[in-house]
Nucleic acid binder design. Structure first.
Lengths: 246, 246
DNA sequence: CGCTTGATTGACTGAAGTCAAATGTGGTGG
DNA sequence: CCACCACATTTGACTTCAGTCAATCAAGCG
């Protein structure tokens, strides 16, 4: 069953309410489904696309997770975000049709491919689809703003707490536990994303663990005291701004 | 003449190639112009809109400059970006029709107001306008990514150099000098934007001045050695990624 | 099993933050 | 016109949080 997840089409997809079809009529979803291409699974450390590639598609995460990052001349990277099921990748290429970042699978994952040309046509015909596209783009932008806030003026501890709360919220939105989940990314990825070093991330995990706020076992995270976690962030960020990490 | 800048309509606007009308046919620009409302000038420290306001418009900067920022519970702020003529404000509100940040004028400025409802209609009718909207949204997203990179792993000196090069490039794009310009923002705004303190910004200005790379006189900046400035950034960012600060 | 890669821990360093004071600038009103 | 004030900016002295370097520990895998 799970192994055939990449063959499921929009009208039957359990993610449809989190994804492009949100707010569309049944027949409109079917129209959308006709332009969606299901792709073969992408395995851990495989790339969806590379920085600089021409990219005439959007990709929706169907299962698994991805990391997007931008590399510079020297090969040093900055992780821009993590993508969970239902989220759209490739929005950065809307500007010139060339991707500005690379996207790599953190685990075996599946995606839906949406050719931009067809999608644009369909947007002209279906106002609510155009509306949903705008909503998604607006969400991407405000989620990027939240990342800017996080990177701007936060201590290592605040960044870590924020990061964990984001994941918690997003997993919960997907119907998973908000207090117990497995990280699909390495410590290095978290560090890079938060603008910290691996050592600092590790130390913060250890501290939060010692304080009993979370229990860390490898990639496994259990949040024992979500109130304390929020309190770490609280002084600097209202609850409803914890909506990011895309 | 300059005092009437807010009455000029799209077909006559010298910014049209940097703004929404880019790539449109003459008659299409005229159509666009019919939905644009010219607003009265906005003075220094006046707000265009406040975080949380319902916002059913986009705003294009016609003259002057703006600062956008997000405030949290405690009243502490994070500056998200600066807007110069030709740039679109209000994209963050596309998600829920509510602005996620506040926008304040850094000097006496004028804007064009574009009602989203009319704009969306027009996009359905004019494919190249829809295309241009997507380009602008893609640019906003990749510019936000550049900010994330800047905040993520850069030293104070690198951030300052990056900041100056951005401004230089953007002023140059507007037809102004790329080596001599006046900052419309205070040191505090720069510091907040870069995730630094005022003191650090001031010290960096002093150092760059001592080294002869720039000449600073209050808000007046003169870049004497753009190569050195680029060299400060270079080790971490390719030249073509210096396109941000929106 | 060893090997490789990832994660943790410890000791030390340094860049940027904090606190405090001085200096400069522009605006206001007597 | 000048004295005064509020605010922005600069400068200095000190502190601290996170980075660096290095060693150790743990886990997955052929």
């Amino acid at each position: 069953m799970e192994s055939n997840v990449h063959k499921i089409s929009c009208p039957d997809c359990r993610l449809s309410d989190l994804c492009l079809p949100y707010g569309l009529q049944k027949n409109e979803v079917q129209q959308l489904a006709t332009i969606v291409k299901n792709k073969r699974p992408i395995h851990t450390d495989e790339y969806l696309y590379l920085q600089g590639d021409t990219c005439q598609n959007l990709y929706a995460v169907k299962s698994g997770s991805f990391r997007s990052f931008i590399a510079d001349d020297n090969g040093s990277e900055q992780t821009i975000g993590f993508y969970l099921p239902g989220e759209l990748m490739g929005l950065d290429a809307l500007q010139h049709g060339r991707s500005t970042c690379s996207i790599v699978a953190l685990e075996t994952s599946t995606v839906c491919e949406l050719p931009l040309s067809h999608l644009n046509e369909l947007c002209s015909q279906i106002p609510s689809l155009q509306h949903q596209m705008m909503r998604i783009l607006g969400k991407e932008i405000s989620s990027d703003h939240d990342k800017i806030i996080m990177l701007g003026h936060r201590s290592a501890k605040e960044k870590m707490a924020t990061f964990l709360l984001m994941l918690s919220r997003r997993y919960s939105g997907l119907g998973f536990s908000s207090t117990e989940f497995n990280l699909s990314m390495r410590r290095q990825d978290i560090a890079n994303f938060l603008g910290l070093t691996v050592e600092t991330v590790s130390r913060q995990f250890t501290e939060l663990n010692k304080d009993g706020i979370i229990t860390v076992k490898q990639r496994g995270i259990q949040i024992n005291d979500i109130t304390s976690l929020k309190a770490i962030v609280k002084p600097c960020m209202p609850d409803d701004q914890l909506s990011f990490i895309a």
